[in-house]
């Protein structure tokens, strides 16, 4: 259990919970990134079986990078900013426990990237996903989106930057389930418990095997 100014985390019945709490849009600050790394490190050490990642409130899962923080980046700090972001993504991927994103609202830009690096996504009917790079003159979530959905849909989302509502994200397979907002945490917990009930070593091996299977075959 722990917290910093914009992140809270705890564990209950073998499931770890991380909440991005940076109202109103839960934009991703460096404080969040450090909090997530600390939480995930703790969960890995404690042998947590499954993790639920969500945003505080019912407006946003994560609105993406903090634009004020990003505007201040210099050529020197931009690389560190990118490295820290990738460190969070890699930690999610390499964690033994599967990470379930509970998408409670707006999920844009860097927030979408974060959700796509998770192993599973369940959403509330208020979930709204957007690959908004083209709207702000950047590129993000291209690599993960292209690996999670067929390219026709990746092109649609990436080139238009349009908002995918919960129902469409479900139809695309980006969300595994959609439930009313008040049931989201219960639903995500049910998914986490289902995973936590299986042998931990087997789940961890399945996750590693899936990570490997998504890599191109060397020398093909």
């Amino acid at each position: 259990m722990g917290e910093n100014a914009q992140t809270r985390w705890w564990r209950q019945d073998g499931v770890g919970y991380v909440v991005i709490d940076n109202p109103p849009m839960n934009v991703l600050s460096d404080v969040n990134r450090r909090g997530m790394l600390e939480a995930l490190g703790e969960f890995q050490r404690d042998g947590v079986r499954a993790v639920v990642l969500t945003g505080a409130g019912d407006r946003a899962f994560c609105g993406g990078a903090d634009l004020k923080e990003e505007e201040r980046l210099t050529p020197e700090t931009v690389q560190q900013f990118l490295r820290r972001g990738q460190e969070v993504n890699r930690t999610i991927r390499e964690l033994d426990a599967p990470v379930i994103a509970a998408i409670n609202g707006w999920t844009m830009g860097g927030g979408l990237v974060l959700a796509l690096w998770c192993d599973l996504r369940v959403g509330s009917t208020r979930a709204k996903l957007g690959a908004v790079g083209v709207k702000v003159g950047l590129m993000a979530s291209n690599v993960q989106l292209a690996r999670l959905v067929p390219e026709a849909r990746a092109r649609d989302a990436l080139l238009t930057g349009r908002t995918l509502e919960a129902a469409e994200a479900l139809a695309w397979g980006l969300l595994s389930a959609v439930v009313p907002p008040e049931e989201l945490l219960r639903e995500a917990t049910a998914w986490a418990r289902r995973i936590a009930a299986r042998p931990a070593a087997l789940v961890a091996e399945a996750k590693r095997a899936l990570n490997r299977a998504l890599e191109p075959e060397p020398g093909a």
Partner: peptide
């Protein structure tokens, strides 16, 4: 799917390709 081991019906199988 592989992490949860859950079953899925024909409609979901169609949706997921």
């Amino acid at each position: 799917m592989l992490l949860t081991g859950r079953t899925f019906d024909a409609a979901e199988a169609l949706r997921l390709g």
